[in-house]
Design a protein around this nucleic acid. Structure first.
Lengths: 221, 221
DNA sequence: TTTTACGTCATTGTCTACAATCTACAAGCG
DNA sequence: CGCTTGTAGATTGTAGACAATGACGTAAAA
């Protein structure tokens, strides 16, 4: 018997609340400084306070919200220093992953990355900003994943979340999409010839310039 | 009026429970695989389940425990791979911190480190294992802190917790205390002359050998 | 006018009771 | 005997009520 029935997912209310709130924060729907009162959230999501509280504790330990006892929970504010730290940590984690991946040098991995970049280039030519961003995330996510380093991956998830949030909050200046996509090409080439030093340099610069652009005209509300 | 009265700490029950449980895990009192039933914990700590649950959610997102829905929470098991990952991450984070610290080169920082090492050497000569360990932690903690990188610090806290747990669980072979303490001396010298490359190399080896010793004869229960 | 004391209100912290779910084992059926 | 199905016990998930705390405004006193 195999009817290909869809898996029934029965996530707990806590998990659903957590996902909803986190998504709202990362998408910029909930802005830094915004107060999150448990009662309101519970009413809005149609649940009781208990699962909301547990979700908020998790978001707190993820560094997305801040809680002051008996005072309230707010979406964590992002300073310019935060941005710089996020991007410097990105460089550290990703270049390390790059090193590990090149060391193992699995052809299948390289092909997977190349496919992502190809699609990114096509999306860039088509002017599809959203697709380019999604594929860019996929690329860097894949890189970390391919390192096979679980702890690295979990740390990177934290940083990647904050990157998403920053990207959602920043007033995107008219960026050259085709340029972003094509910037990944020399990186891929360095990986294919196994030049770890070159690949790390390119990747580092790639991330640093992206971070600098954002940190440069970051205005704190 | 200044009676030097001790500060009255009125931490929430959740925080107290969290600290208690975390300490129990990191000290090895609660061993990997150990089941943590909310009702039992609540009864033992003399509180209700609600704050216990919130504490467990936090420990879960810190990676110290694992929760399976409707099944229970257990202390996370540590595999040999986990150990290797923990120590490789330590190297990555600490060498980066070292780079940052040397770049800024504050004499006061160096002096602070030297004081810690001096005390460590003395404790080593006195055969005080506990003091040596505490001072070793202080040293590496100070190094990270002096980098002034908050995000780095928060990530390092996660790794440092797991290091503590591993250290508590491993059957310590009769290590040469004076050797451990004195191993920090060449590191300090490299820092004082501002030789970043040398300092990073020494630090990396220092941590790697410590990790290898532990990973080597790690037996999973 | 300034300062202090106090009461009100909103919000979080905690507790208890009840519902939902899982595991394991026993009972029914071929 | 083997498989499925039902049931019991334990554990987690959720809800709602109540207590504790802190902020703010108001009024009384210096």
């Amino acid at each position: 018997m195999n009817l290909a029935l869809p898996q029934i997912k029965n996530l707990s209310i806590r998990e659903q609340s957590l996902d909803t709130l986190r998504e709202a924060i990362l998408s910029g729907e909930l802005k830094p400084g915004q107060a999150l009162t448990e009662t309101d959230l519970a009413r809005q999501l149609g649940v009781s306070r208990a699962p909301i509280r547990e979700a908020l504790r998790i978001l707190n330990s993820e560094g997305l919200v801040e809680t002051i006892p008996y005072h309230g929970t707010t979406v964590r504010r992002l300073t310019k220093t935060d941005i710089e730290e996020i991007y410097s940590m990105r460089i550290l984690l990703e270049t390390y992953a790059m090193e590990q991946v090149i060391e193992k040098c699995q052809p299948a991995d390289l092909q997977r990355l190349r496919e992502i970049v190809d699609r990114m280039v096509r999306a860039g030519d088509a002017g599809d900003l959203i697709a380019v961003n999604a594929l860019d995330r996929d690329f860097h996510d894949a890189l970390i994943e391919m390192s096979g380093h679980q702890l690295l991956h979990s740390m990177w998830l934290m940083v990647a979340m904050k990157v998403r949030q920053v990207m959602a909050l920043v007033n995107r200046r008219n960026t050259d999409l085709t340029l972003i996509a094509r910037k990944h090409l020399p990186l891929l080439e360095a990986m294919e010839v196994g030049d770890a030093a070159e690949a790390k340099t390119i990747l580092g610069r790639h991330i640093a310039t992206a971070g600098d652009l954002i940190a440069e005209d970051w205005v704190e509300p």
